[in-house]
Structure formats: structure tokens, C-alpha cells
Design a protein around this nucleic acid. Structure first.
Length: 474
RNA sequence: GGCGUCGUACCCAAGUGGCUAAGGGGGAGGUCUGCAAAACCUUUAUGCAGCGGUUCGAAUCCGCUCGACGCCUCCA
């Protein structure tokens, strides 16, 4: 089986071939170059934003699981209208302002158990590469200046709109455009570089001072880090047009080679049936939800349960269901490591093998992690039955634990949030022992009293045929 | 208006031409237990928005209808 990915550019499912040349073994591929559009650091990111970032993380983890090496980047947009306005409002420098929100963003990524990628380029640190693009585009005659701003001429470029499949003429008639930009030759044209206004930070270029347009940073960073065609470009569907379309135009115009082989776009997170967005005000931040008592773990799980190309309607009820689903996993792990009667034979091998095979087959089909999670729960049910039947050997338990770790290298939610017990284990064990003694001497009143005491402490007892165990009540 | 996506059980959600339509939550039964609880197991859609068509065969392809959402404007 091979990994297949839906490519927005071709609108088809394509075999994933990094570098464009098929190799015999996955290990033979050069590290997969991935560029993921990151946040603009002007305030807290919301969980709609994090849907995309959690997906990026899963994509990365799955490639690693399949044996690919990685070279991934996620940009931090640290200069734009909103960051400049925010810094001015707060009376701090742009760097102080974006530094604060960049820090918060990285904390949130960590809370969601998102792995670090290789590069986190900043727009403000990529100005030299932007200038290179401006010069290349200028030398091709596709750049023009109006009132100190530099624009890309789509009509002269010609080859525009392949990704979004928008008819260029329709853009012209349908677009509502910014009053600021009516100086453009053609409404379709986009700003590569913006003239500096007073109270705005600016950078010197051969074309005069100013600041980056939105689209150019991604093109610049990609060139700087990878220097040629990248394998995958990811982002939210709202970036297809105009952001990614413009990136393609300016990069391919400047360097004359394909910009990205694969385009992956993550659908929106909805809330009450419509897109979660800052401007609509209908958003939750990660911190909002944690304050309500939900775990980052359940948020990660929920964001992963729907396929990335389908809209996901976010509800608090859905989050509760996610927490309960995770409890099933946790309970399984407790039972597994509590097995006392070991079988002499290994009986889990085929179950593990079947799981690994169908997990890979399922997820290989356009990163279908929803299906992969289903396969995983199926795996748990089968193993629970083996536990019930006392058919697991010590060896089996080891192999199952290794399999769980491997699965978690993709999921990232199995062992997430393994918190330290905040309770006095010795005392609880003593009480459990006393209760068992009371039960043995048929002193059920005392036994029930101890049970109630523990429940009041938030400890739930589980009497099993092999003895009593306890857990912290959720 | 242009372009596009989606509509699967009470809720969430896979499956996109061919075994009995995954999985999770919830419900119902059962196992265990002194009784419980917790946990586990089993079960829960003759049907996939509606209608028509193609096919030996369709949730899956095509057409129409209804409904929802997205992009076309800052946006993950």
C-alpha cells in the first residue's frame, strides 16, 4: 500500500511521491519538504486555527510513522495591519507585541501535544529573500509601482488561477475591493510590497522603504529554506484564494519552476453551523475551553476525529463525547497493566498484526485518521476480550504496550496529559485493604462505609475477579 | 450572481461500485459482585436527504429537487 493524498491543485487523489521521483523504499526519499501556513500573531489563536495545526501535526507524525524523513516549516506572520495596529494600541514595539503572542502560540501548541517542526521562520527575518523576489519579478516586467506600493501584474503574467480555478474575469467583476487599493492597474493585482505610512515599521529595499505584503512572506521563506520546489504546502481552505494563488504566481514568476508538488487544505471548524472566525466573534480559544474544565487532550482528540477535508461542527457536547471516548482508552490501559493471570501462550500477535495492517491501509487513503481511530477502538475491544478470557501472556502485554506507543506516535492523545496522581496512594491502598478484610469477615457495613469515604475523596473502586483496584473519578 | 463542498442511526463520525454499512457517545441486555458502583462483553441503520437514471450490482456513478456550509473581502 502507498500513501495517497488529495491534491487541491489537481482535485484528485494522488500517490504521494516526494521529490517527484518514485523510489523503491520509503527510506530512500530525501526528507519531505513541507511548508505549513502558520498564524498571524496578533492575538490568541482559536481552536479553528488549531484544527489546521493539529492536522499538520498528525500529517507529520504519520509520515514519520511510515518511515519518511521530514523537513517542515511553519511561518510566523509578525508584521501586517493587525499586528501593527495592536502594537500601536498597546504602546509597544512591533517586536514586543508579536513576541508576546508568538510565545502564547507556542505554549498552546505544546498544550495540544503538537511536535516541533524543523523551522519557524518569521516574516520580519525574511526581508532579504523578499527583496530577491521583488527584483526577479521586476526583471520579468511583472512588477509595477503605484504611490510607493509594489504590485504584481496578473494580466501580464497570464497563468493565473490554476489552484482555485477562479476565472480571472470573474474576480474582476465579482470582487469587492479595498478603497486603499484602487490605485492598482487592475483590481485582480495584489500588493507585493506596501508603502510605509507614518507610525508603521518599514524596511529599506532598492524600490524604496516599506513593508511586506501578505503573500510574499511565504514565497520568500520557502525560497530561503528550500531553494526549490517543495513537496507539500498546507493550510486552511480559506487560503486557497487569494493567498496561495498569489504565492504560486509570484514564486513561479520569479523562479520559473513549480512552487509545490502537493497542496493540502484543511476544511473549516464550524460553530453553530458557520465558520469559526475572529471577525465573526464566534470562537473559542484553547484557554477558554480549558477554563471550562475541558482538557487539551480531548480537544486534540475531537479535532482529529473528523476527516480533514470535511467541515467539523464544534460543540461542547462533542467535546464531552471526546472525553468519554478517551476514558475508554484509559480504562483499557489500566486493565491491560493490571492483568494478573498470564497465559503461557502468546495470543495477541495476530490481533496486533491485523491492527497495524488495517490502520496503515486506512490512513494511507488520504490521511483518513477517523477511520484509523475506528480501527484502534476495534483493536481495544478485541484485546479487552482476551483480557477477560485470561489469554494474554507477559510477552503479549509487552508487545501491546509497544504497539500502543507506536500508535500514539501518530495519535498523540493516548499518553497525553498523563498527570501525576494528586492523592495519597498509601492511604488509599490501606483503606482498600481494610475494606477487603471487612468484606472477608462479612462486615459489609464497614466495607460500604470505606467505599463511601473513598468516593467522597474522588476515588472509585473497581472490584474485579482478581481483586480490587481504584482510579480517580473523572 | 460565479465557483466549490457536504447531507450516513438519538448525537458525533468512517466508508465513495460488489462479503452481514467501521468506530465513539447514548440507550438496552448480560458478565462480575455480599449489594452496588466501576469496568468489560453483546446489542442497537433491510438502510445511507428526496425522486429518477446508468449497471448483473450503488450510500458510492449521472441528472433533477430540497437543505446546509465554504470561497469570491482580513482569515487556519
Amino acid at each position: 500500500m502507498t500513501l495517497k493524498i488529495y491534491n487541491t491543485m489537481t482535485r484528485t487523489l494522488e500517490e504521494f511521491i516526494p521529490g517527484g521521483v518514485k523510489r523503491d523504499k520509503i527510506e530512500d526519499y530525501a526528507p519531505v519538504s513541507i511548508y505549513s501556513c502558520g498564524p498571524t500573531v496578533y492575538s490568541y489563536a482559536h481552536i479553528g486555527n488549531f484544527r489546521t495545526f493539529v492536522f499538520n501535526d498528525f500529517f507529520r507524525r504519520y509520515l514519520e510513522f511510515r518511515g519518511y524523513k521530514l523537513n517542515q516549516s511553519m511561518n510566523i506572520t509578525d508584521v501586517d495591519d493587525k499586528t501593527i495596529a495592536g502594537a500601536n494600541r498597546d504602546g509597544v514595539t512591533l517586536g514586543e507585541y508579536t513576541g508576546k503572542y508568538t510565545g502564547i502560540f507556542f505554549e498552546d501548541l505544546k498544550s495540544l501535544n503538537i511536535e516541533e517542526v524543523e523551522h519557524y521562520p518569521r516574516a520580519t527575518e525574511s526581508i532579504d529573500s523578499m527583496i530577491d523576489i521583488l527584483e526577479k519579478i521586476n526583471s520579468k516586467g511583472l512588477l509595477y509601482e503605484k504611490e510607493g506600493s509594489l504590485y504584481f501584474s496578473i494580466s501580464k503574467y497570464g497563468d493565473y488561477g490554476r489552484l482555485s480555478r477562479v476565472d480571472a474575469r470573474e474576480i474582476k467583476s465579482g470582487a469587492r475591493y479595498d478603497a486603499d487599493e484602487y490605485e492598482k492597474d487592475d483590481v485582480r493585482d495584489f500588493a507585493l510590497w506596501k508603502a510605509s505610512k507614518k507610525d508603521e515599521p518599514s524596511w529599506e529595499t532598492p524600490f524604496g522603504s516599506g513593508r511586506p505584503g501578505w503573500h510574499i512572506e511565504c514565497s520568500a521563506m520557502i525560497r530561503k529554506i528550500y531553494n526549490s520546489t517543495i513537496d507539500v504546502h498546507t493550510g486552511g481552505v480559506d487560503l486557497i484564494f487569494p493567498h496561495h494563488e498569489n504565492e504560486i504566481a509570484q514564486s513561479e514568476a520569479a523562479y520559473g519552476e513549480k512552487f509545490s508538488r502537493y497542496w493540502i487544505h484543511v476544511e473549516h471548524l464550524l460553530v453553530n453551523g458557520s465558520k469559526m472566525s475572529k471577525s465573526a466573534g464566534n470562537f473559542y480559544t484553547l484557554r477558554d475551553l480549558i477554563e471550562k474544565g475541558f482538557s487539551a487532550r480531548s480537544i486534540r482528540f475531537l479535532l482529529l476525529t473528523a476527516h480533514y477535508r470535511k467541515q467539523l461542527n464544534f460543540t461542547l457536547d462533542g467535546l464531552k463525547q471526546a472525553e468519554q471516548a478517551l476514558e475508554r482508552i484509559d480504562n483499557f490501559i489500566v486493565r491491560l497493566n493490571d492483568v494478573k493471570n498470564f497465559s503461557c501462550e502468546n495470543n495477541a500477535d495476530s490481533v496486533i498484526e491485523n491492527f497495524m495492517e488495517s490502520f496503515t491501509d486506512t490512513v494511507d487513503a488520504d490521511l483518513n485518521i477517523s477511520g484509523g481511530i475506528g480501527v484502534f477502538f476495534d483493536f481495544i475491544t478485541k484485546l479487552n476480550s482476551l483480557i477477560d478470557e485470561n489469554r494474554l501472556s507477559l510477552n503479549d502485554i509487552d508487545s501491546i504496550n509497544s504497539t500502543l506507543e507506536l500508535a500514539d506516535s501518530v495519535f498523540g492523545f493516548i499518553y497525553m496529559d498523563k498527570q501525576e496522581l494528586q492523592v495519597d496512594e498509601e492511604m488509599i491502598n490501606a483503606l482498600v485493604q481494610e475494606r477487603n478484610d471487612a468484606k472477608a469477615s462479612k462486615n459489609f457495613a464497614r466495607a460500604d462505609e470505606i467505599r463511601d469515604t473513598l468516593i467522597d475523596m474522588g476515588i472509585v473502586l473497581e472490584d474485579t475477579k482478581d481483586g480490587t483496584r481504584w482510579k480517580i473519578k473523572k
